[in-house]
Design a protein around this nucleic acid. Structure first.
Lengths: 217, 217
DNA sequence: TTTTGTGAACTAGTTCACAGCT
DNA sequence: AGCTGTGAACTAGTTCACAAAA
């Protein structure tokens, strides 16, 4: 009986979308483990996610031979592999920029800390809000101190919920402070060096998508 | 001088991503119009969005010959075409499900109403919150009345910010009530008939994506 | 027998490069 | 001369179909 091994992966060959799907699989496996399920086939996972089974096998096979032919995947084992691949077997220090409605909502979102993302500091432009000092035990600091504080606090990721007019400037200073990854909620295209990883969540685009399909069918 | 015309489009040929990009272009054009810019080339738009100019021309050409060779695109005209294509020259009636932190944040998000999405009603499970009656003038109703009220109110889209455990059930009743489009924030794959348009916003997946790239580089 | 892992075939989406208008 | 619109070439991503393993 040979232990399934992590392949040494040529990262360039892994499709972009595979990574997002690994995240989904991980959530599915967490659920299956809670249910006490021990093994699962690519076919069963595919049904659950509405995907093709070969795609799931291929996604996983980029990183290793995690399955057993005739049996399927060991739920706990695969889950650990996915956590490992996604870099979730550690804690990430995250800074939140902007404490408006959305910022506050994200701050209380349990899903982040559950996945190992710890919001270490909040930056705000409004002096009144900064004067409040902290929220849920997390310090609130003036946004112009970010460049200095981010390295001191060892922050690796930033979440931007600032107004669109401020977003590019904030993003620039975040990058100058050595942060390499940004989750952006501001509705504009951030111009940043290509080595900085950016994911943008655009609520209006999503709704307008739905509008298009309803409208034109 | 011939008027640029809307092509009769074979919708099956339009790539999925084109629609999302049209939304971005629309935002860019709104901005350019505010700046008093009259015409814009695909090249200039491409620089702004970090895209390829041919892609922009192709995206637009699915729907009509909106440009003028040697000149570019008329900003106001193109903006109107895009609003038309995306179905934004009308108001959409939207129902919000779940009045937690995220639900409240979305309610106060100005971007939705600005784009013509009007939240007509909020549905909540908690009786205490329902007892509050309304929020920002929008009625709050018990979630089990949704199936009855949605058609009465002429709601066409639903935004789901309910807990994952409730989301599938809520989605089912929304669909039974004749709603054809759902913007889903619950972190699970909704199982719905294929004619229902669903867009899911998954905050954890986005962060885990960033984690992967930081971790593995 | 069951289910993986994967080359081959296929489908979708992007970019090139240039003819065709203005 | 300048910029669009688009076929052709290319690149990326998905699904098929089957040999190999348990």
């Amino acid at each position: 009986m040979n232990k399934p091994e992590r392949k040494s992966v040529d990262l360039d060959k892994v499709p972009e979308h595979t990574i997002s799907r690994l995240s989904l699989y991980l959530r599915g496996l967490n659920y299956l483990e809670e249910q006490g399920v021990l093994t699962v086939s690519s076919e069963a996972l595919a049904r659950h996610f509405g995907l093709n089974a070969a795609q799931i096998r291929k996604d996983l096979a980029y990183f290793g031979d995690f399955g057993v032919r005739g049996v399927g995947y060991n739920v706990i084992e695969l889950r650990e592999h996915l956590r490992d691949i996604l870099g979730l077997n550690r804690n990430w220090r995250v800074a939140l920029f902007g404490l408006g409605n959305l910022g506050r909502a994200l701050l209380s979102y349990r899903g982040f800390s559950k996945a190992g993302f710890n919001i270490a500091v909040v930056f705000e432009a409004s002096p009144e809000i900064v004067a409040q000092g902290e929220i849920h035990g997390i310090p609130i600091r003036p946004i112009d101190q970010a460049k200095q504080l981010l390295p001191e606090l060892g922050v690796q990721m930033a979440i931007l919920t600032v107004p669109a007019t401020a977003a590019q400037e904030v993003a620039n200073s975040v990058v100058e402070a050595g942060v390499g990854a940004i989750l952006n909620f501001a509705p504009l295209p951030l111009q940043l060096p290509p080595e900085i990883k950016v994911r943008s969540v655009d609520l209006t685009v999503n709704l307008e998508n739905l509008s298009y399909f309803l409208h034109s069918s």
